[in-house]
Design a protein around this nucleic acid. Structure first.
Lengths: 260, 260
DNA sequence: AAGAATAGTTGCTTTTTGCAACTATAATAC
DNA sequence: GTATTATAGTTGCAAAAAGCAACTATTCTT
């Protein structure tokens, strides 16, 4: 059975106007008639450093959860932010000084009890960046990269941020199975072994070298950088650049090793 | 460089309290100090009827976009809804009289200009249901199943709902490539040809019968219903039931036919 | 009883993957 | 210098999976 919201609902408030046009309606419309939840935007910023997945956390300077670690974020500013996406981009720049190589909306969490101050909703974004591109300055007590173990960090987080982090890690893993997004965790120029290592770190399992190369090369997502090589011990590896930052590559098959 | 939000931001308002405990902070906290966007929840409810994907739309009775078709939804009710998810579930019942077989959060759209009334955010959910399980009663002028062509309907939608619908269709298609969610578009008992047809309708391409069966059987997601058969012309098909409504099946490979 | 329509199986070909051995190129040890 | 070690990259083959098409099975229609 199809029914409309019952008359007690906020959407009906102010609708006693009967035959006016839309302009008239809007002139009389009172946006404050019904209660709204507080609205924030939080960020799960991932990087890979030192062979481990890390997330950027900040130590809360104020209540609630004062002194607790939490995801960076804060209130939407209706005057400054033209959209939720714009708000996320602004906060990302505030936290890292970087326009994100990769910023995607994760999910919105909203409930009566996730914040002691009352009904709040937060739209969470997750970002990927190369660890070299960010340098935490002076105030390390305030913001820090924290290693992710499994799908959590080693201490308590404020609010429902542990759950949010776990969801973000799950989304990251599942996207790695079918897409190329791991390239955003590396600097602009990188080698195939580096890319493979990144996948292995996040998926937490070894991948076959030759299968991995086939897959990546066939997806035609990489551009071979002429002549260049690189670093360390052993034979230097070919440098590549990600070809098309906008296009989405979707692998026809998940990357994890299948039982044989 | 890591920096916190600047002091002009709303999050800092009311934080002149210095050494009080959290209870004291909360007692003084004024939730109305900063402006909040209006917050709504909208639904993209899909079904397959008559060999086509359909979406449930309602004709708006009031401004803005009075008389326009739009996605069902409405304002969050802070008193009634304990969470955004609960609000979505409530609205789904209001629209269809059904607890959804499948309800998932799609995305949040929020901006200054998506609603003429001002800054609004809407969290959109998408739902899948068997068309037999819903019957639109009397007020067809108010709510109706509308065929989806490509990723849109044949007429204008209010707000940014055309864009939202397109995103929802894309998400639906991409989920069908790797998961079993199409079962939620069928009644509890169904046959393999029906399931295959559902995939074909949404993915808009024919699938190979024997490959499809291999895939579904190997995923071990279906339970063969003893003895039962069914309907129409030709040889009756075996009835199945979806085995585990909670578990997620993830196919290791996309279902669409790969170029050969 | 024949034919049509749909369901379901089977066998073979082609494609893709997994695996392991092989070659290549550099730094390091001696 | 030369052997050794470490890493990069290739190749060939076996195993697995997918595509394809023909075949059987079961029901309804005429």
């Amino acid at each position: 059975m199809i029914k409309h919201d019952d008359p007690a609902e906020p959407r009906k408030i102010g609708l006693t106007i009967t035959n006016s046009d839309e302009a008239e309606f809007l002139r009389r419309y009172d946006t404050a008639r019904y209660e709204k939840p507080s609205f924030t935007v939080d960020l799960v910023i991932f990087t890979v450093r030192n062979e481990h997945l890390h997330v950027l956390l900040v130590k809360r300077a104020e209540h609630p959860f004062k002194g607790c670690w939490a995801l960076p974020g804060g209130f939407l500013d209706l005057r400054r932010d033209a959209s939720v996406d714009a708000c996320a981009a602004r906060k990302l720049i505030q936290e890292t000084g970087l326009r994100a190589p990769y910023l995607e909306q994760l999910k919105t969490y909203g409930s009566r009890d996730r914040d002691p101050r009352g009904w709040t909703a937060t739209t969470v974004y997750f970002a990927l960046m190369a660890s070299e591109s960010v340098h935490l300055l002076g105030n390390q007590a305030e913001a820090s990269w924290v290693g992710v173990r499994g799908d959590q960090v080693d201490f308590e987080l404020g609010f429902d941020h542990a759950r949010i982090l776990a969801d973000a890690v799950e989304r990251l893993r599942s996207k790695l199975e079918y897409t190329h997004i791991a390239v955003h965790l590396l600097p602009e120029e990188f080698t195939l072994p580096e890319l493979q290592r990144t996948y292995e770190i996040i998926l937490q399992q070894p991948l076959d070298k030759s299968s991995f190369r086939r897959r990546v090369i066939q997806a035609d997502m990489l551009e071979e950088l002429t002549g260049k090589q690189r670093d360390g011990f052993g034979r230097p590896a070919q440098l590549y650049r990600f070809r098309d930052y906008d296009r989405r590559t979707f692998f026809p098959r998940s990357i994890s090793r299948h039982a044989r």
